[in-house]
């Protein structure tokens, strides 16, 4: 076995160890972040779902930006298909 191979193996082990350590933290943080984003999405699209929103006029201009994420969002929220009648993304 070459020295380089051993180094490669060791690096691999170090990587796995750090992954094993980081993974739970990372997924917790990622989940927390996704929850923030989902709340934000809900605020922007709330009027469409029948939740009155005093700021619809202003959230409207944020909708184009969030559009790409709309499908991910509604599936994650437990809705298999788009909850909006006029708006079918899937």
């Amino acid at each position: 076995m070459k020295w380089a191979d051993i180094k490669e193996k060791l690096r691999w082990c170090a990587y796995l160890a750090s992954e094993a350590y980081n993974m739970p933290y990372r997924s917790t943080v990622a989940r927390a972040r996704r929850e923030q984003d989902d709340l934000f999405m809900l605020l922007i699209f709330s009027e469409m779902m029948g939740i009155p929103n005093p700021a619809t006029y202003y959230t409207l201009e944020l909708q184009p930006i969030m559009l790409e994420r709309f499908h991910d969002w509604h599936t994650r929220m437990g809705m298999e298909h788009s909850p909006l009648d006029g708006f079918r993304c899937c």
């Binding site: 009027e47 469409m48 619809t56 006029y57 909006l84 708006f87």
Partner: peptide, 20 residues
């Protein structure tokens, strides 16, 4: 077409005229 329909709803939502 879907976007047009969806955005049209916003026009008639309460508060839109006020905000405008």
């Amino acid at each position: 077409g879907a976007i047009d329909r969806q955005i049209e709803l916003a026009r008639h939502s309460p508060g839109t005229m006020e905000a405008a």
